[in-house]
Amino acid sequence: MKIMLYGESIEWIKQARTVADILDGETIGVTPSRELGNEAVKILNKVYVFDSIHYEPNSYYKTIYKIAEEVKPDLSIFPSTIKGRTLAGLYAGSRDEPVITDVVDLRYVGRFLEVKRLVYGGACVAVLRASTPLTICISQGAFKPSEKGENGKIEYFSRVDEERVQTIFKPREYLGIPLERAEVVVVAGRGFKKREDLEMVKELSSRLDGAWSVTRPLAADYGWADTWIGISGAIVSPRLYIAIGVSGQPLHMIAARNSKTIIAVNKDPSAPIFEEVDYGIIGDLYQVIPRLLEKIKKKT
């Protein structure tokens, strides 16, 4: 079986490689970055690199499609990010093959693939039967990174340009550690009353050498932050996830579920987040967090 995967980060590529291990397939990577390509050849059998200044879905998918005509993959894998899903749809649509997003597990059962995916905003898991050729999207963190190494080849591929769309890109200014790589992520939810109160979260995250973020309403509705964590925002898989004043709606939790340990502080004992935590503090964050910071400060 030939497995082609389009990757944007080495962490994700390692996880996608695990899928290939499960299915015992040959792995062919595709990436728009030379840097990433150089890393990826150490874990994949072959990597196609096409040069690109920045992302534009229509030219990207045409390029990936052309590579696939050479590779003839049985299974094509994309990340479950907005970009990945968009590309997967374009790619699968033009190849006229089924596409399944939000895949969290898969295996062979007889001649078929049994695929587990999240549905209903992450509240449910559906099991589907599928056959190849097939396109899937897997979430960052859904699979453990593969330990296997390869000594693959790089092939440079010239990009297909889509003149019909022009792109201007303004990169986000990252302050501190990028969320996706942080070991500790502290998240503030609507339990916070004022923007200034987020200082507590920032302080806690910096004391734990982590990153901080918010739920969507704080970013999208109140404008207290640029990004948020959730199905429509960033997906994280840190060692420790600390949610403060967050109710735990599936659309948010879906992006945090791969954290190794989850702690929550919420004053409502029946908040759904307490169903999904390792440790929970039932209490007013305005009492718990200041006291916690005080004690941590005293210790160091």
Partner: peptide, 10 residues
């Protein structure tokens, strides 16, 4: 799924 628009476009 975020894929329907893309499928139509393709």
């Amino acid at each position: 799924s975020y894929t329907l628009g893309s499928i139509i476009a393709s």
